[in-house]
Design a protein around this nucleic acid. Sequence first.
DNA 1: CGGGTAATTGAGCTGGTTCAATCTGAGTGG
DNA 2: CCACTCAGATTGAACCAGCTCAATTACCCG
Lengths: 247, 247
Amino acid sequence: MDSVDLAATRLSEVRSKGTRALDAEAFRSNLEKNSRCYSAGHQLAFEGDNGAPVLWVLKGWLALSKSLSDGQTQIIDFILPRDIALPGAADGLTAAFQVEALTDVEVASLSQHEWDRIKQACPDVQGLAVNLAAAAQARMSERMLRLGKGSAPMRIAYALLELSVRLKSIGEMEGDFIHLPLTQQQLGDFTGLSSVHVCRTLRRLVRNGVITTVDHRDIRIRDIAALSEMAGIDVGRLAHEISPVAA
Amino acid sequence: MDSVDLAATRLSEVRSKGTRALDAEAFRSNLEKNSRCYSAGHQLAFEGDNGAPVLWVLKGWLALSKSLSDGQTQIIDFILPRDIALPGAADGLTAAFQVEALTDVEVASLSQHEWDRIKQACPDVQGLAVNLAAAAQARMSERMLRLGKGSAPMRIAYALLELSVRLKSIGEMEGDFIHLPLTQQQLGDFTGLSSVHVCRTLRRLVRNGVITTVDHRDIRIRDIAALSEMAGIDVGRLAHEISPVAA
DNA sequence: CGGGTAATTGAGCTGGTTCAATCTGAGTGG
DNA sequence: CCACTCAGATTGAACCAGCTCAATTACCCG
């Protein structure tokens, strides 16, 4: 399945109520026309940039992050395949986030104007965007709760579960393995912890038999019940709350 | 100006591109029909409730919050007059937040179905919703950055500035005074701090002449430059990034 | 093999927490 | 007008989770 098919798949899921196929065609050609590849580590945009485009990820991971003046960085969200990143601030003019490719990525980049046009032409896309935005808000809220009030183990456990749920929903989870294209530093920027403490916390999870790690990047969840309890969440409920188009 | 006029005002701002006035009428009558008043402290919804309605706030403040099983609470966002709260999770079925009235409020409550209908009938409302959602995401992101990586003074300073910007944009800021209908406990739930530390941090701000407090609820910003620096933000830029319909 | 990045581990420090005592101010009833 | 009450604010003291600093190890790649 190539990457455009991936997006089309998600589209067809949404199109369950039966609207015009032509819209999907127009949209697909637009995506194809605009899609580009970038390699891991590439910066697609910086905070404060003008003319923030809409980014439709076909393949790979993006990180949306914000930084303080002292260089401390917080990863606000990960954008996975089939997701749409709207890095614009409320003024619609500047980017609210820095956007970095965490893996090699294939991304369709649309200007605000093109994006508006596509949404008009294709109600499916409009609906998909609304669903994806709701999912993004839901998972950000769960993270904020833990960022504000949770312990380090809870934050790490939640991050692993959130990502496993999201990967599973796009068919990129193999059994109970998740591949995280992240350094411990980045996992710390995501969970609001120092890289050192991420390491210690992960080691403790391994020692307790909750997870095992291979290669520092591939994590196997051995005891999902323990992990869920640590994260303070029921995995089934989480999947409902943060997955777009659960139906 | 009564509360429905308030909402209509915001609507007319958005309607600058000149669409049908009838839509606005239909929408107004729908709002009027559905608006209700609740008194401070009233719980409008609980996390996990079924059939989460859309809440259009005409008057007063709401808090959207989430809690851990040990009772620790994080306030995810405040909903101010003219804002629309979408407390639904991604599944569209259950509420992702607890919704509490912080003051006496007047709120129009719409079911998902009514909300969809209004958005269809009145593109202005659709556009407004998109703008408000973008603003909400932008301010949540700023807070996440500080929740993950900022010190207590930075979080408090940012919270004060965010709220002052938002109050100013709806004309509810009198000079350099902001009235916060919040206990220090709630301010702590918002900033991810204990109420004790909120108190200490506010006292320090007062001691340094950055703010003064009256009555524990009315805060006067005396040195906005110092507060901005502490928050790590430029107030003008913040206003652009988190204010819907800046134009 | 050398060089560089990321992970791991140890040691000590500190910002923010918890616990607990007191203080303040707005009601409330007599 | 005062005494009583109760929620919230304030302050002190002790504690600790997570941080920083620093050294070492593991791994990848040319």
